[in-house]
Write a protein that binds this DNA or RNA. Structure first.
Lengths: 242, 242
DNA sequence: CGGATTCTTGACGAGAATCAAGAGTTGTGG
DNA sequence: CCACAACTCTTGATTCTCGTCAAGAATCCG
């Protein structure tokens, strides 16, 4: 119902849905959008880097981003994908002055709305619904991080990779002649599934031999036969490890 | 400054500090405390169980609790310690109707303030500062979970155990004749450090041989020589793995 | 055609879980 | 006060998963 109204906003793409805006009235959303600055970024561009002072709040309009932590060695530790409707940079309004605590990078061409620190502070004191939106978003992130943590602690590399493939197909995949195509390199899937490049390659090769999927350079194709419903890779996996 | 005022509340122990209450005025805190119910629980008692409908918001007054997830096999996946000032059960106010998504259990005798669902809803619409308190708490938890995740992905079992010991000594430890005593069984330390009982035992034995600590049944004693400042176990560990 | 990426595969080894057996500690009841 | 049971901890042997390294194959691009 409220969503129907929100679709009327020219600044937001049709079908746009955001936990972040859920607690706001259409009038408030309108005011929020007007005070935002619109940005476009390309794949591999970095939106925010952990450690930098947090002075911007973002709302992803279209496209996809990856959220990760950098290790001391400069490696990436994947945390989650960001999809349209996701907001980032909460440190800016929650515990200013703060620093970003994750790094965010585009994986697809993305369009973003941004508010600077001063605007955020003005908005937050004016619209209490904004705080509740932040609550909802933070709570969702917390949930998803806990899930990711549980996954990494309890599942084998094979299970993790399968899950990542299904999630990626859902979130980043697009229909192709042979099925759903996911434009990710082995390195990127491995990152998201928290395993080495080689382990990922081995599992993927095995699945390709079994005919579960087809691989190309920088792309994985899974047959579109109902893989959206249930994890198709959960079957070939031996006994439930729990 | 605000903290000085808060110490005046008879319902709160002296020195009590809580992110959750930080955004509220003394008057609001007073109202909040009056509408709370006070509870006491003993070690191993379960405060909330994941999956149950979230109908209570908690604030830990004194004592310690453990926050964890249950696996399908009934095993525990440790997430964090809860210390006085920590609040739990945010689902109750953030996305009602909700279910608890973690299990919380006392590890020490604990005293807790609780608000039921109806009260929460009344309070949340009345005091916008409450939302900001929730924001701060959620953001803190998110940060700590990410840290825990990073730790588990990048550090060896030895490093993790060392870190857990130091943290446990800080949070649960009490002074004894030979040093700081931590009343945890091997099984519990292993749980917190995310490793098997046996791996934990091996590392602890090794450290005991080196003289870094002393062990008893259900208790670990670390010499109180400045272990509060810096991780004393970081030294014997070989090259930095990153 | 090079040159740069990306991917594959095998060999090897480190780390940690599992299993098994037993030693040490605590508490209880006779 | 001792004997026994229950619990907790230790240690070694074994196994498994997965990361690392090395070498080379496949693909893409200028």
């Amino acid at each position: 119902m409220r969503q129907t109204k929100r679709e009327a906003f020219p600044a937001l793409p049709p079908g746009f849905k955001s936990t972040f805006l859920d607690a706001l009235t259409p009038r408030e959303i309108s005011a929020l959008l007007q005070s935002a600055r619109s940005i476009t970024i390309s794949p591999h561009e970095v939106l925010q880097q952990e450690g930098e002072p947090a002075d911007r709040l973002w709302l992803l309009r279209t496209g996809r981003v990856a959220v990760y932590r950098l290790t001391r060695g400069g490696n990436k530790l994947f945390l989650r994908w960001g999809v349209p409707g996701d907001a980032f940079g909460f440190g800016t309004i929650v515990r200013a002055p703060a620093q970003y605590l994750v790094t965010i990078e585009a994986v697809q061409e993305a369009s973003i709305l941004a508010w600077n620190l001063a605007t955020c502070q003005a908005l937050i004191s004016r619209y209490p619904g904004l705080s509740r939106g932040v609550n909802g978003s933070l709570s969702k992130y917390l949930d998803s991080i806990i899930d990711m943590f549980v996954m990494c602690q309890l599942q084998s590399s094979e299970e993790r990779l399968a899950r990542v493939l299904v999630e990626s197909a859902n979130q980043l995949g697009h229909a192709g002649p042979e099925g759903i195509e996911v434009d990710l390199k082995n390195e990127e899937v491995a990152l998201a599934a928290h395993m080495s490049l080689f382990t990922a390659s081995r599992h993927l090769s095995k699945w390709q031999r079994t005919g579960l999927l087809k691989k190309h350079r920088g792309k994985i194709v899974v047959p579109s036969l109902c893989p959206f419903e249930k994890d198709p890779f959960s079957l070939p996996i031996p006994g439930d490890p729990l």
